[in-house]
Design a protein around this nucleic acid. Structure first.
Lengths: 165, 165
DNA sequence: TTCGAGATCTAGACACTGTCTAAATCGAGC
DNA sequence: GCTCGATTTAGACAGTGTCTAGATCTCGAA
């Protein structure tokens, strides 16, 4: 299969951006994200910056598939594997949390401050609950268990005016 | 009164010398399970009794696939769909809890008393933590959220001699 | 400038999990 | 025995996440 038009490849973002004249505003907006990636020891490629720009700033709790959809709007040729790889990379480097809510329903959360989660039984909607809203004693006295992190997961219903079943 | 447990027998399982003894033992053991199913309003078919006999008694936190494997030892022709359907049925009727630990890692827990969970980072092993081991204040004062159930999910490492990487 | 090494990205195949469907079978009541 | 509804079966299907081979990129060295 011939490719009539040259495919876009990873833009040169390592080191000084050599194509800075492409979109100065985008580069300027991306700058803090690039800093964060560098600070975390992640090489900031164009794809990674695009993914991180969305997923580290949203409060949507997006799924991987949703991230792919959104990021494609600004970087149309990014592949699914790259999105998954980048999300895993961000999780491994502690910039992102992964929440598994139900079978086949994994979601990402950039909020790094400690907080709890509430999951709506009907809609599956996730709501962040401030850490101070629930009094939880530090788990200790658990022989043989070194607790790295913990949180309260609540399930129930969100009492909105309409959502009733 | 007594229900034939394995009505249609297809193929003998390899290396099962005393299948008859196994069946007798199973029938005797199945009686309380049948009662529980009936009490929950579930029609106790042979397949359901076989699934429930294992999954309601284990402390293994098995996955659906694991349940299928184990149940097939006593009921060789049970289909995957039936196992999934039965597990969902048990969950819907409150005899079983579903835990989603990681993408593609859903597990079932027959322990109905309130308790918390600890997940080992390295091995994925799940450990039940008694309710009283952690002081958690009742979640309230959460505007618009009707909490049905909640628990603490801890992650970290189990300090055993072996769990090492 | 050219080259090569290593990092990154892509497309698609693959594996796994869970659901759905149509048809077969069961079992209770007539 | 017959019928009807519930249940089960096998396999197809759908969604999610990983893996692979090869292409492309960047950088530093020659």
């Amino acid at each position: 299969m011939q490719r009539p038009v040259a495919r876009r490849r990873a833009a040169p973002l390592r080191g000084a951006p050599s194509q800075a004249n492409l979109d100065l505003e985008m580069v300027a907006r991306a700058q803090p994200v690039i800093e964060r990636l560098r600070a975390a020891g992640i090489q900031p490629s164009a794809q990674r910056v695009a993914v991180a720009s969305y997923v580290l700033a949203t409060d949507e709790h997006p799924s991987a598939e949703r991230v792919w959809t959104v990021v494609k709007r600004t970087l149309p040729v990014i592949s699914r594997a790259t999105v998954y790889n980048t999300l895993n990379l961000l999780v491994r480097h502690g910039l992102l949390h992964e929440l598994v809510l139900a079978p086949g329903r994994t979601v990402f959360d950039p909020k790094l401050e400690r907080h709890h989660h509430f999951v709506d039984d009907d809609t599956g909607r996730i709501i962040d609950v401030p850490w101070d809203a629930i009094a939880v004693g530090e788990p200790r006295g658990l022989p043989g268990l070194a607790v790295r992190e913990y949180q309260v997961v609540m399930r129930g219903r969100q009492r909105t005016a309409r959502a009733r079943r």
